[in-house]
């Protein structure tokens, strides 16, 4: 029975398939647009990857002049004098690191404090609006921070604070002398840049830490309360250790933002290429030297040196991103076991 019916089916099927029009054949070959569709979305996906790789490759090629002539010496050399073709990136690397550290020292306790307040203490009804307000700080453009820094923040906050530090610790002749606060001090300084960066990265640290804290299982807190802990002890000894790697991820992302911040820093740091032990002296960061000196770079070596600084910034942010990813990955891997 079965073999007969399939035989008949085949015989009748042949003439029908012969009547397929060209249009249908094209449609079938392309699976009614599925193949072009798949091609297009793969292309879009690849373009995102291509951009990431392309940034590294293009900056690598465009910085060949100084990479070939100076090699690794470019990073360690401390002299930056474009007129006599001396390109050492150390003053800028030091400036980026010192302003970022200064920003983190202020922003970590502040941001974490806000995150704890939002996640643990504040009534749920005002949690969302308060969080939104803090996040608005991240939405204000860098260049607006810069203008505010020049005209408002430096004269009213940085100058008095800096002068106090200078008078108390910066004078070799009397009192305690700390080289960190040596003069001269004009306002525009590492201190100004570090303080503005702190304001700018608080929202990053707060937003991610708050989400991490809210994700800590309730049972952890209940356990600590049940043992007689105060609320602070619960937060400090149970909730924060549990959320530590997530908070570290938040700090790394904040650091990434501080390293690459350009306009606000350029406008308040003073733009002087020098190595200094004092946070009160004017300086440069890697990002701000690119922004500020690009217009003057007439020779190939000069442009190449600035692009190489950009290349280093690219690698730094790539590294930080990998690190943050690994942390998130380790948390998401660990959590399912702990919930059981």
């Amino acid at each position: 029975m079965a073999s007969i019916s399939t035989g008949k089916g085949l015989r009748t099927a042949r003439p029908i398939s012969a009547r397929v029009t060209l249009n249908q054949r094209i449609g079938r070959a392309l699976q009614h647009g599925d193949i072009p569709y798949k091609g297009i979305i793969v292309l879009a996906a690849l373009s995102v990857i291509g951009l990431m790789v392309g940034v590294g490759v293009m900056l690598w090629i465009a910085s060949s002049v100084t990479r070939n002539s100076d090699g690794l010496g470019f990073i360690t050399a401390t002299e930056w004098n474009p007129v006599s073709d001396l390109f050492g990136a150390m003053p800028f690397i030091a400036g980026t690191i010192s302003t970022s550290i200064l920003a983190l020292v202020i922003a970590i306790p502040l941001g974490l404090g806000v995150a704890i307040f939002l996640a643990e203490l504040c009534p749920p009804r005002i949690r969302a609006p308060l969080g939104f307000l803090v996040e608005l700080l991240a939405a204000i453009p860098s260049v607006v921070y810069g203008a505010w820094g020049i005209f408002v923040f430096i004269p009213t906050v940085v100058k008095p604070v800096g002068e106090f530090l200078l008078n108390t610790f910066g004078d070799k002749s009397h009192g305690i002398f700390i080289p960190l606060f040596e003069g001269p001090f004009f306002g525009a300084s590492y201190l100004a840049a570090g303080l503005i960066l702190a304001v700018m990265i608080v929202p990053t640290i707060t937003a991610i830490s708050r989400d991490v804290l809210l994700a800590v299982p309730k049972a952890q807190r209940e356990g600590a309360y049940g043992l007689g802990s105060t609320q602070w002890e619960t937060i400090w000894q149970v909730v924060l250790p549990y959320a530590l790697s997530g908070i570290l991820g938040a700090v790394i992302l904040g650091l990434g933002r501080a390293l690459g911040e350009t306009m606000a820093v350029t406008m308040v740091i003073g733009n002087v290429a020098q190595l200094s032990t004092s946070i009160l002296s004017p300086g440069y960061t890697m990002a701000s030297v690119i922004a500020n000196e690009w217009g003057e770079s007439r020779t190939p070596a000069y442009s190449s040196a600035l692009i190489e600084i950009g290349l280093m910034l690219f690698f730094m942010s790539l590294l930080l991103n990998l690190l943050a990813r690994l942390l998130v990955w380790s948390v998401s891997r660990r959590n399912p076991d702990q919930r059981v």
Binding site: V42, A45, L46, V48, I49, L51, M52, G54, V55, M58, L59, I61, A62, S142, L253, G256, R257, L259, G260, E261, T262, A287, I290, A291, L306, I307, G310, L313, F314, S317, L318, L320, N321, A324, R325
Partner: peptide, 28 residues
């Protein structure tokens, strides 16, 4: 593999210092 790379690429691009983007487009 591509899906994971795109996610990573998205993270890298959104964390990329804006000045680096400017330099990249300049060279390009």
């Amino acid at each position: 593999a591509i899906g994971l790379m795109v996610r990573f690429g998205t993270d890298v691009l959104s964390g990329l210092p804006s000045i680096v983007v400017g330099l990249f487009v300049y060279t390009l």
